[in-house]
Design a protein around this nucleic acid. Structure first.
Lengths: 215, 215
DNA sequence: GAAGGTATCGGGGTTTTCCTGATTTTCGGG
DNA sequence: CCCGAAAATCAGGAAAACCCCGATACCTTC
């Protein structure tokens, strides 16, 4: 039986390229594609794929939060992050979220094949450059630097922040997340209190600096 | 004779995906790949391909400068930009540099096939979303260059925008500039109308891109 | 001197935000 | 198993911001 894979990336041409490569593998097939994190969680629940190739920077829900949700629901689904960021914050948060592998988009496709086979055996696979980062982190146990978004904000708060920084209105966010407007307001207030920020403008700048939205 | 294509993108897995898709086309073949702009210019000189698929964000030399050099040397080489940015500055600079096409990475691969065939006949091809931008730009009748903030916004509007992007409230701005709240509101409305933006978040991102506020 | 863009305000209604609560859920020790 | 803290959910009411209208005055441009 073939390894069933879901590809989650916001760039369609990237998804198609990956699908073309994966489907050429005799023991793999792409079961579905997701253009955002929310869709990825739904597909994971519905299709129960063996592996999900997950981009990090995506609309609606970022790859890290999506990974956390999927793994919480079903640990058998292996997730391989495929990101352009080698930033240690993304790597560590992705692994903490439950990802089994982390590849850079610089990698050769052959590496992705290896990664899929590796995670299917229950092991982890990291790009060589990523391995360096993890080892250094392990050795140093650094007094962690400036990144605060994953330490002082909850998952829900990050979701709300991401939508805010994308210019969504409170009402739109409430609708998207199936919450009342009041709840979203409370989250926004909580975010602002934690970050000691009092405007959407500075909130947006913070989100950009922390990498959870793009310019 | 097949259309000979060079793929220039800094992400190897992207190049491989594109190559897999392109080589499935009966009338196309990938002649070479470049991982940066400098390599792309060398390959263009050496191989004289029909088409170059060019990413914009690359190390060594960005796709825009690479395009300029290649076109200056040989106008017969058609260049199609394949970018994740729909930002008007990138689009315009790329077209000014001599690109014959501009596709977003969101696009379907089928669009890239169409684009290649189109540019081979000497015409231009743009993604629908990009076309919108170019048309809007044309209608706005902007005589020249990149930065829009100094051409379509007045000085007063720029002042207000800057304060907005710094997180000031309407009341604070009115106080600072010795204006009534109503006047500031009108300016904000005028700014949003001109830029076709409907949220402070996106306004902030615009201000950052234009350099009138900092992160 | 008419036209058009800029800069300045206001009225009045709608929406959002802000502040202060409160309840339920979750989850890790004791 | 219970307990408490953190997280997630929601409400009411006042303040602020937003939106859609219109108005005046001051420029330049044609």
């Amino acid at each position: 039986m073939k390894i069933r894979i879901v590809v989650a990336d916001d760039h369609k041409i990237m998804r198609e390229g990956l699908k073309a490569l994966i489907d050429k593998q005799p023991d793999m097939e792409v079961a579905a594609e997701a253009q955002d994190g929310l869709t990825a969680t739904r597909l994971a629940r519905k299709l129960l794929p063996h592996v999900i190739i997950m981009d990090i920077g995506m609309p609606e829900m970022n790859g890290i939060d999506a990974t956390r949700e999927i793994v919480a629901e079903n640990k058998d689904v292996k997730i391989i992050a495929l990101s352009m960021h080698s930033d240690r914050r993304f790597v560590l948060e992705m692994l903490k979220a439950g990802a089994s592998g982390y590849l850079l988009k610089d990698s050769a496709f052959e590496e992705l094949v290896t990664a899929v086979h590796t995670v299917m055996t229950g092991q982890s696979y990291l790009s060589p450059r990523i391995t360096d980062i993890v080892v250094k982190e392990y050795l140093h146990n650094l007094p962690r630097n400036d990144s605060t978004v994953f330490t002082i904000l909850t998952q829900r708060e990050r979701e709300v922040l991401q939508h805010l920084a994308e210019g969504k209105t409170t009402k739109q966010i409430a609708s998207t997340l199936n919450l009342s407007v009041k709840t979203v307001e409370t989250h926004r207030q909580q975010i602002m209190d934690k970050l000691q920020i009092r405007s959407v403008a500075e909130l947006t700048k913070y989100a950009i600096r922390e990498g959870i939205t793009s310019l």
